[in-house]
Design a protein around this nucleic acid. Sequence first.
DNA 1: AAAATCTTTCGACATTTCTAGAAATACCGT
DNA 2: ACGGTATTTCTAGAAATGTCGAAAGATTTT
Lengths: 103, 103
Amino acid sequence: MNLEAANAARLLAQLGNETRLRIVRLLVRAGRSGMTVGEIQKELDIPNSTLSHHLTSLRHVGLVEQRRESTVLRCLVDYDRINAIVDFLTRECCAGEKERKIL
Amino acid sequence: MNLEAANAARLLAQLGNETRLRIVRLLVRAGRSGMTVGEIQKELDIPNSTLSHHLTSLRHVGLVEQRRESTVLRCLVDYDRINAIVDFLTRECCAGEKERKIL
DNA sequence: AAAATCTTTCGACATTTCTAGAAATACCGT
DNA sequence: ACGGTATTTCTAGAAATGTCGAAAGATTTT
């Protein structure tokens, strides 16, 4: 999956907003069944316009996918994307430690 | 180390800025010997005031520590802090996957 | 204490991001 | 097609963030 730095920053910036981080955590816990926009809204108690705005951002960086189910929009987190971030951080931002511990 | 969500968001937001992410990666690679502000500046080629500003932000969230060595300021990344972020993401944002894979 | 080097602080501006009410749109069941 | 529920788009103000030149602050060397 290997993110490049610029992309990693974009993803990290998304998670850097507390509201969006809450959304993502909620969806992660929801797993493969995901949650509808309305369910998320009830849980987080934020205006629908604000929520919709954040979901759009999350969709744009590929962290969240939406799927229409008749009247309802089901939101799903993209686990690959999340893992890509963790991988990036592990690879690019934790690597130095061990090498230098010897020095 | 266990970050709480609000703190995690603050840290992630720092890494969400491309310039700051570059700074952190540089320091991670530099390891225990770190880098002076001037060395970082040469490497990234950004104005000192801008760099200083970002280093202050990074210091405020504990990602970077500075240590004066006579005329020079040496910057060191806090590996514990980085690991705490990775741990947080792994714990709070990847957890759902396995549980649900069975469903 | 003045010079030289390194780094930060100040101040100002531009840009982006966040938030949310109101209006519009989308889809379904009737 | 109408009514109802779900969600987005529009719009706009407020707040936060990013950028950088110029001046000021440290610290050592002379």
